[in-house]
Design a protein around this nucleic acid. Structure first.
Lengths: 225, 225
DNA sequence: CACATCGCTACACACATGTGCAGCAAACAA
DNA sequence: TTGTTTGCTGCACATGTGTGTAGCGATGTG
C-alpha cells in the first residue's frame, strides 16, 4: 500500500515520475529533457533511450495517469465505503500534472473516464431529487466534472482567496467544508431558474436587448463565459 | 461600441492583441516573439521596441485584461439589466488568454476581482436561502468563482463531452441550460451534507479508516482532490 | 570463450528563440 | 536648415534544447 521507495523503481519508472513532476511544475514546454533526467538521477540520453522523444514521454505520462485514474475509479466503484478522501490523497502527487494536461488539451481519456463515473453516480442522485433536473445526465456529469476539476486546476488561486494553503490539512478541511456547503445549497431559486430559462428560450441566443428581458440577477453568468 | 477596426489601432495595441491571441492559443512558453510580430503585421524588433522583453509583454497583456475585466465588472454593477450574457460575449476573444493566464499562475488580480464581485452577489443571494450557508461568503465566493471559471478553462473537454462546440450559439444554449439546471438543484441532500460534515469533524483529517466512517456517497469528492 | 543484448553515459549537432544593436525615414523643433 | 525624437526594420549573437550517435560495462547465452 505504501508508495514504493524511489530507489526500488526501475530507471524508466523514475524517469516517468520525474517527467510528471516536472511537466506538472513547469508545464510541458518549459520542462526540459535535461531537467527531467536530473530529477530522475539519470543522464539525458537515457530519457531518449527509453522514450524516444519528448512527445512520446508525454504520451507515456498520460497513459500512466489514465491507468492510475482507472484503478482509482474501479476502487471507488467496488469499495465506496473507504470514504471519499482516499482517492484524493492518492492522486495528490499527480494532481499538478493532471491539471496541466487538462488545460493543455491532453488527458482527454482521463476526463472522459471521470465523466462516465460521475454519470453513474448522477443517476442515483437524481432519484433522490424532489424536483428532478431535466437535462441529460451525461451533460450534467460533464459540466459537474469540469467544475469539480476547477479545484485542482485553480488551486493556487483558491488558496490565495481562502488565505490558507489548501494542500495542507487545515486548508483542505476549510475547502471541503465549504464545498459541502455549496453542494448542499441551490445557487438559484426555482423562480430565478425559470426566468433565465425563459430568457434563454424567448430571445434568439445572440443579441441581448438591453432593458427588455427579465434581467435575471445571476451572479455567475459573467464568469461562466 | 463596436470593436475598433484592427487597422485603426496603433501598432502597440495590435502587438498586444496579437500577443494575447498567441499566448492564449499556444501558451506563454510556446508562443514566440516572431509569431506575435507576424500576427500583428510588424517586425519582431518592434515588439521588443515597445515592450522591452517577452515577460514585460506578458505583463502588459495581464494589465490590459485586468482593465477589461474591471470595466465589465463596473458595467455589471451599474447596469444589471443588460442581462448576464453581454459580458460573456465581450470577453470571448480574451477567454483563451484568461484561461491560460489563470492556469499558469498569473492573472491573480483578475481572479480576485471576480471573487469580490461574486461575494457582493453572494450576500444578496444568502438572504433568499431557506437554510443559510454557514461558510464565510468570501470563501464560498472564491470557490464559486473557481468553479465558474472551469467552463472557459476546460471548454474543450466540455465541448467534447457534450458533443457540440460550446463556442457556437447552439452549444452555448445547451451549456447554459445545463448550468441553470445544476445551479438550481442542490447536489447533496441536507442529511448527506450533515454526514460528511460529521465525518470531517470526527476523524482527524488524514487517515481515512476503511469501513468505519459513515461512508458518504459523495459523487464529487474524488474529482475534487 | 565469443557474442549479442541491454541499460546507460557522454558528446556533438542543428535549430529555434530571446535579445542586442545599428540604422533608416518621417515628423517635429530650434 | 540642422538636430532630435519617434516609429520601425533587419540582422547578428548567445544560448538553451531536442535530437542523433558512438561507445562502455554488465549480463546472460550459444
Amino acid at each position: 500500500m505504501a508508495a514504493p521507495d524511489p530507489e526500488d523503481l526501475t530507471a524508466r519508472a523514475r524517469i516517468r515520475d520525474a517527467a510528471m513532476q516536472q511537466f506538472g511544475e513547469h508545464g510541458f514546454a518549459r520542462a526540459t529533457i535535461r531537467g527531467i533526467a536530473e530529477a530522475a538521477g539519470v543522464s539525458s540520453g537515457l530519457v531518449r533511450h527509453h522514450f524516444g522523444s519528448k512527445q512520446a514521454l508525454r504520451e507515456a505520462c498520460d497513459a500512466h495517469l489514465t491507468k492510475l485514474i482507472r484503478a482509482l475509479n474501479a476502487d471507488a466503484r467496488s469499495f465506496p465505503a473507504v470514504g471519499p478522501r482516499a482517492p484524493s490523497t492518492a492522486m495528490r502527487p499527480y494532481e499538478r500534472y493532471l491539471a496541466r494536461a487538462l488545460t493543455e488539451g491532453a488527458a482527454c481519456a482521463v476526463f472522459d473516464d471521470m465523466v462516465t463515473l460521475s454519470e453513474s453516480w448522477q443517476v442515483e442522485a437524481d432519484a433522490a431529487q424532489s424536483v428532478p433536473p431535466e437535462t441529460d445526465p451525461r451533460v450534467r456529469a460533464t459540466i459537474g466534472t469540469a467544475m469539480a476539476l476547477a479545484i485542482p486546476v485553480l488551486r493556487s488561486h483558491i488558496s490565495r482567496g481562502l488565505g490558507v494553503d489548501t494542500t495542507e490539512p487545515e486548508g483542505e478541511r476549510l475547502l471541503l467544508r465549504a464545498l459541502v456547503d455549496i453542494y448542499s445549497h441551490p445557487i438559484l431559486g426555482t423562480d430565478e431558474a425559470a426566468e433565465i430559462r425563459a430568457a434563454l428560450d424567448g430571445t434568439p441566443p445572440h443579441p441581448p436587448r438591453p432593458g427588455t428581458g427579465p434581467a435575471p440577477a445571476d451572479a455567475r453568468s459573467d464568469d461562466d463565459e
